[in-house]
Design a protein around this nucleic acid. Structure first.
Lengths: 205, 205
DNA sequence: CTGTAATTCAAACGTTTGTTTAAATCCGAT
DNA sequence: ATCGGATTTAAACAAACGTTTGAATTACAG
């Protein structure tokens, strides 16, 4: 552990390539070549490709989830809250995270990917990582909108996740997409645009 | 072309497996084994794996897009319309499509996948297939909500796509997910729930 | 029945994949 | 300086992949 240089370079390159080309679409040889390290270094430091994937997730998901969790907990301990405050506590740290560096942005595009990951093991690992957060989120939304059933809010919350996932994905792919496709993705809207969309959808009869 | 039996069985199995495990995650050997046909039949009938993917899409996307298109065109030719009518013309055929058989449901989960497909060739092929529809959709939404800028509506429309994609994906994976994960996905909400979410989000200041 | 094209089949092709091995190298403590 | 654990390296591994081949089989028109 004296020289974290190799470890970190592998994680950085893997994160970027996973975000751009998916997990199955990225080979260890490509990762280690980009990182300028030996192929076997992956297995030495992470045990396997799945271990690398897991570490890529945990590295940034840890701090991000902690912040979202603490904001949600603070809300619950507070005097009262509405649905918008709940959603802001979840979405805002995510979007602010995206603005703090290219690495983070790649990582968020990665989350958008993980939401519908085909590989069962990877999806399971991701779900275990976010399940507590999602349950807390659903609980608070139910508390903020007590006149709506939990099943209904379950679905609306997933619609919200889908909308945010689309935002994260397009934001991550924007530069590479604009030059490849004819379609031009306009500038990113402020986070308020996304939050407004979600809140309006979540409330309502 | 006298015996479409093989062709169709390959398409059916490929559709189901692509929906469940993604494109890279599904091998031709698995497809042909499930279909009970020879491995080489894929290349005989479709030329390549990419050719098969393309045909799986076109088979159902053709009729579905035609219906959505004609409903949108009819709306444009009519006396007047609001945003909800525009979105209904797009979403309703999609959801009704999902209720007409397991094959269709698999296909819709597949669309949810294609929206963030890593492979550039496949994503390009899919985008070319839906680009005209998306542009028409955006035009009509702009016309229905003239007080909102096109860029803003571009993003809100993508949020809507993300929400619908999440619905399609979860609907397709529901049975296999409930038994695998601890999380239980409740019964599907009526399409009105999704449409309501989207419309509320799309309108607004 | 015969001959021709369409279709299926088993087998192998060359690549690429994740993974493993064992030797070589580096680095800090004695 | 030297030892020992940590790290890196080149090379090879078996397995799986998409693809190709050429012969075998089927289906159908003359």
């Amino acid at each position: 552990m004296s020289c974290p240089h190799t470890r970190q370079k592998i994680l950085d390159c893997a994160e970027k390539l996973f975000a751009r080309h998916g997990f199955h679409g990225t080979s260890l040889r490509r990762i280690t070549a980009d990182a300028g390290v030996n192929l076997a270094a992956v297995h030495y430091h992470f045990g396997s490709k799945d271990g690398l994937v897991e570490e890529v997730f945990k590295r940034r998901m840890g701090p991000l989830n902690e912040e979202r969790m603490s904001r949600l907990e603070a809300l619950r301990s507070g005097p009262g809250f509405d649905a918008e405050q709940v959603l802001r506590s979840f979405v805002e740290p995510t979007l602010r995270f995206a603005e703090q560096g290219e690495g983070n942005r790649d990582f968020l595009a990665l989350i958008g990917r993980a939401l519908i990951e085909p590989d069962e093991q990877i999806r399971r690992m991701f779900f275990d990582l976010v399940a507590p957060l999602f349950h807390l989120l659903l609980d608070l939304v139910c508390e903020a909108l007590p006149h709506l059933s939990r099943d209904l809010l379950f679905w609306r919350l997933h619609f919200a996740l889908g909308a945010m996932g689309r935002y994260l994905f397009l934001a991550g792919q924007r530069s590479s997409m604009n030059e490849a496709m004819g379609t031009v993705i306009p500038d990113l809207p402020a986070g308020d645009c996304l939050i407004g969309f979600i809140v309006r959808g979540l409330e309502g009869p």
